[in-house]
Design a protein around this nucleic acid. Structure first.
Lengths: 215, 215
DNA sequence: ATGCGTATACTCGCATGCGAGTAAGGAGGT
DNA sequence: ACCTCCTTACTCGCATGCGAGTATACGCAT
């Protein structure tokens, strides 16, 4: 099994990468990361920042440089990245890029329990999702267009990826919706019956219980 | 702001949905969920099961039915779903299906920091990812084919979705790889220089710092 | 000069998450 | 008859996560 990272939170990687540019104190890291829109690239909770910074320091990936205090303002500790931190950031990045891990989205979770609702309601819900998704795709496309004027491709690939994935999801939802609304989805009546009575046909229940491939 | 769920962990939804079928004790829930392959549909950690069950009970979404003990074996508490639990499960499912939330994958995080590595190494890493991805797609396709013989579509949509997303990712990576390896990706030399010196051209640094659209 | 909103720069406490551990029954071999 | 390994069925403790709170400074309007 791969050795677990000393600091698991991706916010830690973000901190390391900004510190590569220059030393900073935590609040400044937050400002820079926010300005760069890193919140869209990873699930960042600012409440975790100081904990993460402390842990990075504890594991020797960053080190305190100085403790400025100006007037009566709270003390600001400036950190720099260490050699170990540099190595960790590179290694972490390598892993993120080369090893695909399946991280089921909450939509997938929803799909896996959609039998609890009836097909007609599901159609309505998916229409809402699709509409929201399309608005989002539109907005992302515009934003990307604007950014192209300011930044090189290198710093936009993650946005291009996110956009592509959203488009793929929209396309998939459109397909499912067509089947459901068009009535070509198999055994819609069975589904309706199951939803109203709560009872699946025996052989299905059995097969579901018996389990499926572990992939 | 939407009222937060009393139990936030998706494992809680999984528990509610199995209890809809019939009352069970926690270990049995785990067995059934495992057999149904729910681990692929949501990020489930079995260590959280008893905590989640306790929380569901605390919030009145499930209720203890009986406490069997056979011989000297540890006591088994059987739970059933309450009306509130039923309502919560339906409402939760509705939300998951209709509201798209952006949950950046770890790959996206990796892409957002890929400037820290050089373009040639990135090509190698992405080739690895693509190969792994293709193997996975192949395996998923086979598994899905086999399951189609046993289960109705209704219980396979989440697998179809996961497969579609993986295929989309593979296609996107193939595209990027073609640009990088084919040399059509803009300013590869600038990237190389940046990687070796750690210094971005001034106007780029400025633009990056100045920030981008908040989407 | 005084008030007020916004930006700066953190601190705190509590729930949650979850890996690792535990212990008894049963199955299957020798 | 005994050993051993797998399955059943949980318990525990510690780190982490993170929402909410705090306190000072600064800009700008009145």
């Amino acid at each position: 099994m791969a050795k677990r990272r000393p600091v698991g939170n991706l916010l830690g990687l973000a901190v390391l990468t900004v510190l590569v540019q220059r030393p900073m104190h935590p609040y400044e890291m937050a400002s820079v990361l926010r300005a760069r829109g890193k919140e869209q690239d990873m699930r960042i909770k600012w409440g975790s920042l100081y904990t993460v910074v402390r842990n990075l320091e504890k594991h020797g990936l960053i080190a305190a440089v100085e403790s400025n205090r100006q007037g009566a303002r709270p003390e600001r500790t400036v950190y720099r990245v260490t050699d170990a931190g540099l190595a960790e950031a590179a290694d972490w990045t390598r892993e993120l890029l080369s090893v695909p891990v399946s991280e089921p989205s909450s939509f997938e979770a929803g799909l896996s329990v959609l039998g609890g609702l009836g097909p007609d309601e599901v159609v309505t819900l998916l229409r809402h999702r699709l509409a929201a998704l399309e608005r989002r795709v539109e907005a992302d496309r515009d934003a990307l267009e604007r950014e192209r004027r300011e930044l090189p491709r290198l710093f936009l690939v993650e946005d291009e990826y996110a956009l592509a994935m959203r488009e793929a999801e929209a396309a998939w939802v459109r397909g499912l919706l067509a089947e459901l609304a068009g009535g070509t989805f198999p055994d819609l009546d069975g589904w309706r019956a199951y939803h109203e009575t709560g009872r699946m046909p025996g052989h299905v229940a059995e097969a579901a219980e018996r389990g499926r491939a572990t992939g």
